[in-house]
């Protein structure tokens, strides 16, 4: 078991009205790991997980979950898989706790719903109907419904959408515990922070195919190797012009604006580079409000891979 992936997707193709939304996608997710499928809207993330959940038959390629075909072996697979849909899938007229208890009845050996409700803070709105819940409350209820069967594979489609920070922390904590207990967790997200903090493995998807994958450090490291350099980002209290700093640092550094009040310096960043930048700002009486050194974020990698323009 530890050697065979919990989810294995090979050459997946899915077309809507002749247009390929997923186009030759390969993906594998291991048990005891959180795998984040990261990509912009319309990249094919939701369609991919819906093929894994047995909700859509693939047009080409193979999908195996715990070695089974999600469509043909659905009856055997459904007790082993938990699903949180992007649009929730909760009936609007049902009370929160009633929905959780109802789905629990579908399993022979479900999670104790009292304990689960307490874990995810559902008790405060147990008797409230779904249509009157806030976005964060709905997401917590949908997560509870996804895990109440104590699944071996969990698919979470944009689990943090519309959540307040407290809800998000509770959700992330539960996702980590599921992983530590050996479940394979596959989550789609366009939140870098979520992928960076939570994922053991990140798969970057765009235009229906995988364009990069690896652990977060791996993705960041390949990026640094490619550039042979690190990046220093300074945020300032006032607007500054990049031109003066460019002259001061010389041609071996690239200086560009991130915004009117932040500059990114790319090159071989040494202690004296930092000193030069701050001294130059001090000479202009500009206060540094934040300084990020060395490590590019997953967001930088993501934007480099998928492009910075709106689509």
């Amino acid at each position: 078991m530890p050697h065979s992936p919990a989810v294995e997707v090979r050459g997946l193709v899915k077309r809507y009205d002749g247009r390929a939304v997923v186009d030759g996608l390969d993906l594998s997710a291991a048990a005891g790991r959180v795998t984040a499928v990261l990509g912009p809207n319309g990249a094919g993330k939701t369609t991919t997980v819906e093929c894994c959940e047995g909700l859509r038959p693939p047009d080409a390629g193979t999908v195996r979950v715990l070695g089974l075909d999600p469509v043909a072996d659905g009856a055997a697979l459904r007790p082993l898989v938990g699903v949180m849909l992007q649009d929730g899938g909760l009936p609007t007229g049902v009370r929160a706790r009633e929905m959780l208890d109802h789905v629990a009845r579908m399993y022979a050996d479900p999670w104790d719903t009292d304990a689960l409700a307490e874990r995810l803070g559902l008790d405060g709105f147990a008797r409230t109907t779904v249509r009157r819940l806030s976005g964060g409350q709905r997401q917590r209820l949908a997560l509870a419904v996804a895990v109440v069967g104590r699944p071996r594979v969990v698919f979470l489609d944009e689990p943090s959408a519309g959540m307040d920070p407290q809800s998000r922390l509770a959700v992330w904590q539960l996702v980590r515990e599921l992983r530590d207990e050996g479940a394979a967790v596959i989550l789609t997200t366009h939140l870098m922070e979520e992928a960076e903090d939570l994922a053991d493995h990140v798969v970057v998807v765009d235009h229906g195919t995988v364009i990069a994958q690896g652990s977060v450090p791996e993705l960041l490291a390949t990026d640094v190797d490619r550039r042979g350099a690190a990046t220093l980002v300074v945020h300032t209290a006032h607007d500054v012009a990049a031109t003066g700093l460019r002259e001061r640092l010389g041609p071996s550094y690239a200086v560009e604006h991130r915004s009117a009040t932040s500059l990114a310096v790319t090159g071989e960043v040494t202690p004296s580079t930092v000193a030069t930048v701050t001294a130059w700002l001090a000479a202009q009486d500009v206060l540094v409000t934040r300084l990020d050194l060395g490590r590019r974020t997953l967001e930088d990698v993501f934007l480099d891979l998928t492009g910075r323009s709106l689509r």
Partner: peptide
């Protein structure tokens, strides 16, 4: 048959009987 309270231990992963589900 329920899990220890508040602990996401893997279960028996079985469905409830078909008649009960329906």
């Amino acid at each position: 048959m329920t899990a220890p309270a508040g602990h996401p231990a893997p279960g028996r992963h079985a469905a409830a009987p078909g008649a009960r589900r329906v």
